[in-house]
Amino acid sequence: MSYQRLSPDERRAQILDVARRMFTELPYSEVSTAAIARETGVQRGLIHYYFGTKRELFLKVVQKLAASAALQVPPVDERLTLPEAVELCVNLFLDTAERNATTWFAALDAEGFGQDPELLRIVNRFRDEAVEHMLTVLRVEPTETLRAVLRTYSGLADAATRQWLQEKTLDREQVHTLLARTLLTMVSEIAPELEGTADPALD
């Protein structure tokens, strides 16, 4: 890429876009700041000036990924039934996973530099925000028990998308069926039972 004169904010955004693409296409260990600099058309020192080390740049990429995924949550639609809201949640998750699979799995595994506390903090905060978004879309009463159930569900969602996008043992339709039916059951049956209350709709 030939050099272009850009403002500092534009240059930072350009570097982040290139880094995100490279971290998405390649394992963390195979990406270098020198390669990112070549792709961006800048000196390697500029990467370090704006972002520091490769680790810090990767953390910024994951942080931006989490923020952009959070923005995909649509306005609440009061007309949706619970099963329809579940379908919407699952489709949003699968769309995001498909666009960002390699980067997200690298973040979950902390691939390349071990269990990094800052990376885990970003991932856990994203999980917490995803749970709150699900509660909003599903229009169910938030309780700590239900939040815990949905956190457990997020682990299943990660494992299922690995089978689809990495292992190739399931296709998207199969993963959708698995996640949608499980989420509906967790919200309508399992969580109420754990709360010690019965769901009148199931009587």
Rank of each mutant, 00 (worst) to 15 (best):
L146M: 13
E167I: 12
P117S: 10
T177W: 10
E129S: 13
E189M: 11
L146D: 02
A34V: 13
N91S: 14
V137R: 13
Q166P: 00
S68A: 15
F126D: 04
E173M: 06
L26K: 15
D203L: 15
A69F: 05
Q4S: 11
N100I: 06
T185G: 04
R121I: 00
E78N: 09
R5H: 12
R79T: 15
T40P: 02
R38I: 03
T136E: 12
L46E: 08
L170C: 08
V90R: 05
T96Q: 13
T143G: 07
E173P: 00
A148N: 13
R38C: 01
D109S: 11
G155M: 08
L119G: 04
V61L: 04
D203S: 14
D199V: 07
V90M: 04
R79A: 14
V123W: 06
E173V: 10
E39S: 13
L165T: 04
Q14I: 00
T136K: 14
A69Y: 01
P27N: 09
G41W: 05
R38F: 01
L59F: 07
L138W: 06
G114A: 12
E189R: 13
A69Q: 13
L184G: 11
T145N: 07
E87V: 09
A198M: 12
Y50T: 02
M134P: 00
F51H: 11
T143Q: 08
L88I: 05
R99V: 08
L94W: 02
T53Q: 06
E98F: 01
N91G: 00
L82H: 08
L16P: 03
F58T: 04
L170H: 10
A97T: 04
P200S: 09
Y50D: 08
T197R: 15
G114Y: 09
E56H: 08
R162G: 07
V90G: 02
T53P: 05
F105V: 10
F105T: 05
S188A: 15
A159H: 12
G114H: 08
D171F: 10
T53D: 07
T33W: 06
L82P: 05
V131D: 03
E78G: 01
R172C: 10
G112R: 06
R38T: 11
E144T: 11
V31D: 02
K168E: 14
K64W: 00
P75Y: 04
L119Q: 08
I47R: 04
G52H: 06
D171Q: 06
A106E: 05
L108C: 12
A19I: 02
L46Q: 11
E144W: 05
H48D: 11
L120N: 12
E189D: 13
L46G: 00
D128L: 09
T145H: 03
G45W: 02
R181N: 13
L71E: 15
D171C: 11
A101K: 08
A101Y: 10
I190M: 10
R11C: 07
R79K: 14
M22P: 04
A106P: 00
M186D: 09
A157P: 00
L150I: 09
R127M: 09
